[in-house]
């Protein structure tokens, strides 16, 4: 019982902290969650995190909220999902409520904008770090088809702005065919 309560508290405080610092959209939250729930707490394994990312990304709604629901559900079932949602939406709710009272001053404040500019470089570094770890695992496995899919998907996204849902469906289809072909 006590362990369970501690787990709820850890879940809540983890998603709360992550949500309070996720500048720059849904894909920033995934690396942060990976560092926390995969590397630090060990509640979720590497491949599972990628699966949950695919589900969060291709479901409707905010990616951060979707990812929290999935992690909460995995760790503590439906009550866990509810706790994770609360932890995720409280920080932006409070921050925006405060800012909306004097948002013109906030928007034009030079100090705040300089801090934000510096933080953006840090956010880019955090996401890059996780990409290096994830792609590194794939390269170490020497799985030529997976590496090819990764590179082609990257090109499709960057150069041709291919819709993410289409990409996930195609990649899933390739996986299905490979499985059927037994390789």
């Amino acid at each position: 019982m006590k362990d369970r309560i501690r787990k709820y508290l850890t879940l809540f405080s983890s998603v709360f902290m992550i949500s309070a610092f996720t500048f720059g959209g849904g894909f920033v939250i995934v690396p942060l969650m990976k560092r926390k729930f995969v590397d630090e707490l060990g509640w979720i394994d590497n491949e599972e995190m990628l699966d949950l990312t695919a589900i969060a990304q291709s479901s409707p709604g905010a990616i951060a909220v979707n990812a929290s629901i999935l992690i909460g559900y995995k760790t503590l079932g439906i009550p866990g999902a509810a706790v994770a949602i609360l932890g995720t939406i409280i920080p932006p709710f409070v921050i925006i409520s405060v800012i909306s009272a004097f948002y013109a001053a906030f928007r034009d404040n030079r100090i705040i904008s300089l801090i934000m500019t510096g933080m953006l470089a840090g956010v880019a570094a955090v996401v890059t770090d996780v990409v290096i770890s994830m792609a590194g695992t794939l390269v170490r496995d020497r799985n030529i088809i997976s590496i090819t899919v990764m590179i082609l998907a990257f090109i499709a996204l960057r150069l041709f702005s291919v819709n993410i849902i289409i990409l996930i469906v195609l990649a899933g289809l390739i996986g299905y065919i490979r499985q059927r072909a037994g390789r």
């Binding site: 894909f27 299905y176 499985q179």
Partner: peptide, 29 residues
Amino acid sequence: SSIQGILNGIRPAVIAMIASAAFSLITMA
């Protein structure tokens, strides 16, 4: 096993998506 195959196929694409987001963040910064 069929779901396993599909998920195995999707994972590299997810890494590419995160890499693409990283790329955008780097150019933003």
